[in-house]
């Protein structure tokens, strides 16, 4: 099982109502439905992913976070709002974070760490924009327009009064890695954050 699914699963309680922003082909929601009897929806814009979701029985809504926002969802209408590997692809990650915690009591966010040593090394040595397994694009065609590091993300959370309940760091294959736990911002490729509003 993918380590990130395993980690996220632990934070979802049986019967939770979840919203998955950028749900891809519905793997995570399908997994949570089977393992946790979770209900809920995924939002997606990729036509092939949407079709796959529909075929596997994952409720999917075609909705673009950048252009349509999340106004159609009511406050506190979900137990958990998920966003895996999509934060870096939206125009205003800060506003999406606010929205996540408006809709849900808790948020789970995963994104690639732009301060991973291989990316730092690549940029330092070659002077070219880095590419990696989790960032396999050219600078001009990448959907990842808001890259950040773990430190950046945590600073933003502090500034917004968002409390980080837990953070787990994994490598590009979503495997646990003790080195990554030791120096996350240098050795961690992907982080999984569990966030909530400060006063909860």
């Amino acid at each position: 099982m993918r380590a990130d699914l395993e980690i996220i699963q632990q934070w979802v309680k049986p019967g939770h109502h979840v919203l998955d922003l950028g749900c891809g082909d519905g793997t995570l929601l399908d997994f949570l439905k089977r393992e946790r009897n979770a209900s809920g929806f995924g939002l997606e814009i990729n036509p092939d992913h949407i079709t796959t979701c529909m075929n596997r029985g994952v409720s999917v809504i075609e909705q673009n976070l950048d252009t349509q926002g999340l106004d159609n969802f009511e406050d506190n209408s979900f137990d958990i709002v998920l966003m895996t590997q999509a934060l870096q692809a939206v125009r205003r990650p800060d506003k999406v974070l606010d929205e996540m915690l408006r809709l849900g009591a808790e948020g789970i966010v995963t994104f690639p760490n732009f301060a991973h040593w291989r990316l730092r090394w690549g940029l330092a040595l070659s002077g070219r924009m880095p590419e990696s397994d989790s960032l396999p694009y050219k600078w001009y065609n990448t959907p990842n327009i808001r890259l950040c590091t773990f430190k950046d993300f945590e600073a933003l959370c502090r500034q917004k009064g968002i409390r980080i309940k837990s953070r787990r760091v994994v490598d590009g294959q979503h495997q646990n890695n003790w080195l990554a736990r030791l120096w996350p911002n240098l050795l961690g490729e992907i982080a999984i954050y569990r966030i909530t509003r400060e006063n909860t």
Binding site: M54, V58, S59, V60, I61, E74
Partner: peptide, 19 residues
């Protein structure tokens, strides 16, 4: 259609939507 979908979301019905 989205009006319909949003009502289904609010009612926590299972719904999929595409434009």
């Amino acid at each position: 259609s989205e009006e319909m979908v949003n009502a289904m979301i609010a009612a926590r019905r299972k719904v999929s939507y595409a434009e």
